[in-house]
């Protein structure tokens, strides 16, 4: 440790957002941004997630040409979109496509919280809908990594309708008898949790992820008792039967492989 401090530049060190301990960046990256001290799972960007999930160089992005409009001429929305695009290098809050997992083709969608809080507007809803339709049309399982604060306020009612639209997608895939696996990452909230996310055949969550319906303050105000300390965590949701299993980041890929093998969707 001492030696590394002496030899490394400051860019080689990061601080855990939870336990605040200093971590050697190459180790931190190797651990997939999980703190080796406290196990805190730091958020990943969508393309980083795809890279650690799929077989190398198999991802083919789809529907990347879709862009958000500003149908309501909502205050500052175009600026917010532009800023999100500049800071993230992405055009929207979900990256979707196809790729291979253990040699088998799957449809994958990964939400990116860095893009406007992973909020679901018309483009996110459409891209997720197309994941389900692609799965049903091409007989492929669908895997979605969720990370979202909920519906995108700036598209008003149109965003609300995406909850129904994506649910229709789940229904189509279900009818086709194909597996749909969801992974709840930090955070999976509100309009996303209350639509397609909660309808997966199997729901995996990352340890410590925030998973819930309303904001914590709103929830506390609406309740008589004090919320439990683990309220709206992946662990809380698992205790209450809303999540199948909590899986540490490094084990997610093998877990998905196992599930797909069991459902006959891969392997």
């Amino acid at each position: 440790m001492q030696r590394r401090v002496a030899s490394g530049s400051s860019e080689q060190w990061v601080q855990c957002q939870k336990c605040k301990k200093i971590l050697f960046k190459p180790d931190f990256e190797r651990a997939l941004r999980v703190c080796i001290h406290c196990g805190h799972h730091h958020r990943l960007r969508a393309r980083e997630r795809i890279a650690i999930t799929l077989d190398p160089d198999t991802f083919v992005e789809q529907d990347a040409e879709l862009r958000s409009d500003d149908p309501l001429r909502f205050p500052d929305y175009p600026d917010k979109l532009m800023r999100a695009q500049q800071t993230t290098g992405e055009f929207e809050a979900v990256i979707t496509g196809t790729g291979k997992l253990g040699g088998s083709e799957v449809v994958i969608g990964v939400m990116d919280f860095a893009f406007m809080g992973g909020s679901m507007g018309s483009v996110v809803g459409e891209k997720i809908m197309r994941c389900f339709l692609r799965g049903a049309d091409e007989y492929l399982p669908v895997i979605l990594f969720c990370a979202s604060g909920g519906a995108r306020m700036q598209e008003g009612m149109l965003s609300l309708m995406q909850m129904a639209k994506t649910t229709a997608g789940v229904e189509k895939l279900q009818r086709a008898g194909l597996p749909y696996l969801a992974v709840f990452t930090d955070p999976t909230m509100a309009g996303v949790l209350a639509s397609f996310a909660s309808l997966a055949d199997v729901i995996i969550a990352e340890p410590g992820a925030l998973v819930g319906f309303a904001g914590q303050r709103v929830a506390a105000q609406a309740s008589s008792g004090k919320p439990p300390t683990n309220f709206q965590t992946a662990e809380f949701q698992t205790e209450h039967g809303m999540v199948d299993l909590i899986v540490p980041r490094a084990q997610i890929r093998p877990t998905l492989l196992y599930l797909l093998e069991m459902f006959g969707g891969a392997g």
Partner: peptide, 22 residues
């Protein structure tokens, strides 16, 4: 939005209600 509803899966109930209607 309360704690009780969260404990019993308000999100899942909303999602499944839509699914059932579809």
């Amino acid at each position: 939005p309360g704690v009780e509803s969260e404990s019993r899966g308000i999100s899942e109930a909303i999602a499944r209600s839509m699914l059932t209607m579809f």
